[in-house]
């Protein structure tokens, strides 16, 4: 242990670099390599208890802890935002246990841990995107037994998933699945892209960055290598479509981005703003203004900084 132990609370307790012990990291690292070798196949792994509850990204945190090194710059987003509780606490966790550089800028990050969004800025070959996944099995709500879903993946038997999408059409007239929209990876495994909006599905296809998925409670790791075909399931007469927004971002006037609806009052007032806070801030810094952007207030804050 030559200098890699992280001193916590003035030497009261010391953790290994990036919190996990070395044998746990090796186990996760082996799972990651097999996951990359078999795109979208869910590799079982011995998920550890982490100092945060299940559902807070324990799978993503374990994957990040196993890959991160001293030279990395980490960005953490929660629903696209860098400044929400989950993102702030995971970022602080890695600053504490791995002493790693952090950023909110997408293009400055080498490792991006995400909960339910893919950044608007196109990813590059030198980046790794780590997803926090609640339910990794796309067939789980159609078939509760693990033995059966495993057999279905083994036999490439995905008819049930098409029945589910067809039932959407029969009931609603269109495929009403809007998030966790199933994809077919490299023409073999059907995969749950985690609860990202289906708006982000096209970004997974032939993405230059490596995409890793960690599900802590369900104890599964899977991966999409760079430049891999990712196709959203659909029908010839009901092709896959992403969400469209009628108005641009109210703050930065961006179009063709994913927007969050924000309720303004109890009289039906609302605004749509970028879900990707970094993208929105960069656009505003470049002078783009939406119809609700506070011109004066923003200028004042900038001057203050």
């Amino acid at each position: 242990m030559t200098g890699q132990a992280q001193d916590i609370a003035g030497g009261m307790a010391a953790y290994n670099f990036a919190y996990l012990d070395e044998q746990t990291k090796r186990m996760i690292r082996r799972a990651i390599l097999k996951g990359i070798a078999i795109p979208a196949y869910q590799v079982p792994f011995a998920s550890r208890e982490m100092p945060m509850p299940y559902g807070w990204g324990t799978g993503g945190v374990q994957v990040t802890a196993s890959i991160i090194g001293r030279d990395d710059t980490l960005k953490v987003i929660d629903q696209g935002a860098d400044d929400t509780t989950n993102a702030v606490s995971i970022r602080a966790f890695f600053q504490k246990v791995a002493d790693v550089a952090v950023t909110t800028r997408t293009r400055e990050a080498s490792v991006i841990q995400t909960r339910h969004r893919i950044p608007e800025e196109p990813l590059t070959v030198s980046q790794v995107l780590v997803y926090q996944v609640p339910i990794p099995e796309p067939l789980r709500f159609l078939e509760p037994r693990e033995t059966e879903t495993r057999k279905m993946h083994a036999l490439e038997e995905y008819g049930l998933m098409h029945v589910k999408l067809y039932e959407d059409i029969a009931r609603h007239g269109h495929i009403a699945t809007t998030y966790a929209y199933p994809v077919l990876v490299d023409d073999r495994y059907v995969m749950d892209p985690s609860p990202t909006p289906k708006f982000d599905n096209p970004k997974m296809d032939m993405c230059p960055a490596l995409q890793l998925f960690g599900a802590g409670r369900e104890k599964r790791i899977y991966a999409i290598p760079p430049y891999t075909r990712v196709v959203s399931l659909d029908f010839e007469d009901h092709p896959f479509e992403v969400q469209r927004f009628e108005e641009p971002c109210a703050l930065c006037a961006a179009r063709d981005v994913y927007l969050d609806e924000v309720i303004l009052d109890d009289k039906g007032g609302r605004m749509f703003v970028c879900s990707d806070t970094d993208h929105c801030e960069e656009r505003r810094a470049a002078g783009n203004r939406g119809h609700l952007a506070a011109e004066e207030a923003y200028a004042t804050t900038e001057a203050a900084q």
Partner: peptide, 9 residues
């Protein structure tokens, strides 16, 4: 610890 991380990456 650090060299295993570099090698794994």
């Amino acid at each position: 610890v650090m060299e295993a991380q570099v090698a794994f990456r």
